[in-house]
């Protein structure tokens, strides 16, 4: 904001000067130079930790991956996929609750990271856990309800990841794009349900994730009501 005000004080004439100005703005924009790189590092940290555990197990005989490494990796990636999905879903509520509008600029990045961990989670299941046994995978999808529900979440997220670019927003139009990207709510609900169904017995952890998801949805639902009241 400061950067913007400062460059605004100068008179701007001609295309070259305008470009110069945008560059200055970008360079001084903390979102570009501080926050986004920090978010990148934080989002890659869980993967880096997993990489370290794998390396430690292979080279130093570490036991960080437990006695059942494939299951551990599957659950670890699944946990982080769900966490990032909820973090991405928290962007709008954060804007509503804090009024910090800039946070919306992180939404695509966080959403794509959520998809990244979802993709790794599924890749681990297909490649390491089932070793590309497509028959067994198909059987899982149609017979094991928690996997069916997980697949629903994945299928909702794929088109969102594909259409995440500016080009796609233009191609299908802002309104349609917004409508399409509402599918993330279905994915969020399905992911929470997938986790709940996967656990045996009555366990708190999936309920906590479910409650966070419900809370995030509630903030969204309350916002238009508030606006209505202000208007009347």
């Amino acid at each position: 904001m400061i950067a913007l005000t400062m460059s605004d004080t100068g008179t701007v004439n001609g295309a070259a000067r305008t470009q110069d100005k945008t560059r200055t703005v970008k360079r001084r924009d903390p979102m570009v130079w501080v926050i986004k790189p920090a978010v990148w590092v934080l989002c890659l940290a869980p993967l880096a930790w997993l990489g370290w555990l794998v390396a430690e197990t292979i080279f130093f005989g570490g036991r960080g991956l437990t006695a059942n490494p494939i299951e551990f990796i599957n659950r670890y990636l699944g946990d982080w996929a769900l966490r990032f999905l909820l973090i991405a879903l928290a962007v709008t509520p954060v804007r509503i609750l804090t009024g910090w509008k800039q946070v919306v600029r992180l939404r695509r990045l966080l959403g794509l990271f959520a998809f990244f961990y979802v993709a790794l989670h599924v890749a681990n299941y297909v490649g390491l856990d089932q070793f590309f046994d497509w028959g067994a995978i198909w059987n899982d999808i149609i017979k094991r309800w928690y996997i069916t529900v997980g697949m629903v979440a994945l299928l909702c997220l794929i088109p969102l990841a594909v259409t995440s670019t500016k080009g796609w927003i233009k191609r299908i139009g802002g309104k349609n794009w917004n409508r399409l990207h509402k599918a993330v709510y279905i994915a969020g609900a399905a992911a929470c349900l997938h986790f709940f169904m996967m656990r045996k017995g009555l366990q708190y952890e999936p309920l906590v994730y479910g409650a966070i998801f419900a809370g995030l949805m509630l903030v969204r639902a309350v916002e238009p009501l508030k606006r209505l009241r202000v208007a009347s």
Binding site: A67, I70, L128, K200
Partner: peptide
């Protein structure tokens, strides 16, 4: 088979396949 797991196969701890 169990509703959550096919019981046709198993992973012996310490083995990959």
């Amino acid at each position: 088979s169990h509703p959550r797991w096919s019981q046709a196969s198993e992973r012996r701890i310490g083995e990959i396949f």
